[in-house]
Amino acid sequence: MNNRNYKREEIQGLVFSNLFAFSVIGITRALSLHPGVFIYAEFVIIPFVMGIICSWFWKNLELKGARVTALSVLNCTVAILLSAIFLGEGVICLIIVSPLIFGFVITGTFVGRAMFKRDNRNLNISVLSLLLFLFVADSLSKHHYESKVSDVIVINAPAEEVWKHVVAFERIKEKNKFWLFKVGMPSPVAATVDGYYEGAGRKCIFSNGYIFDEKIVQYKPLENLTFDIVKQPRDPEIMGHIDILRGQFLLKDNRNGTTTLTGNSWYRLYVFPLWYYDIWAESITRHVHLRVMDHIKSLSEKR
């Protein structure tokens, strides 16, 4: 940002765009339009309009592109810090959301810059009306999304051996390889059970002490362990934005001393747009699977 001072209009752009964003989010929360869910409008349209608002304040400053980009980055950083304070979001959530916020604020700023340079009032009103329509339509739409992630590995051990480590397993000591786990996202470390039968309680313990309470709903030794998640922690780091609904391990004896282990998880997402967040949800769920499945593999092949 060099050492130059900020002009009054530059500061106004930053202040009013953030004021707009948090007021709109506050109003939608107060109206309980989509409780507990963060929608497309909040991650795409609000940042985009924040950029346009900045451009409006900066329209007479003749700012160069480099300065506009730098101010936009500052604007995003302020918005993200305010999200941490007022919305209680955790660091991992903010890392995940950042590309969307940075991308759409910068896009909005450059689009706004072009709009106000052209100074076509009809065009400007049309653009803003379209954004308002999209915002209202998205806010009033139903947001419900559930999906499933599957992973398959082959273990060099018979099903009898693998099954011993599927229902419950001792503590995982291997180092995490997934970058989000390395930066502090909780990863699974152990599983315990109350009993080996349908209806028994199971607990999946995470690295930060979180416990997912589960109930075994299908118990077919050497074949199928399915459990529903009956209670899961709520915290700012991801867990409030995704619910794991059900987990499943399927074993297939390959009749050659090896076993194919399939891990399935069903989850519900509370953050939209899906084209962005589902990529993260799949990746995170997959790495949770693989952490457990690799551990089962290593325990089974140790015999």
Binding site: K64, G65, A66, T69, A70, V73, P99, F102, G103, F104, I106, T107, F110, V111
Partner: peptide
């Protein structure tokens, strides 16, 4: 446009001089 904004953001982080050349 969104993709181009991300390019600009990445340039701001890794090669800010580029933004001056563009200007």
């Amino acid at each position: 446009l969104f993709f181009d904004a991300l390019l600009k953001f990445s340039m701001f982080i890794i090669k800010p001089k580029m933004l001056e050349w563009l200007d």
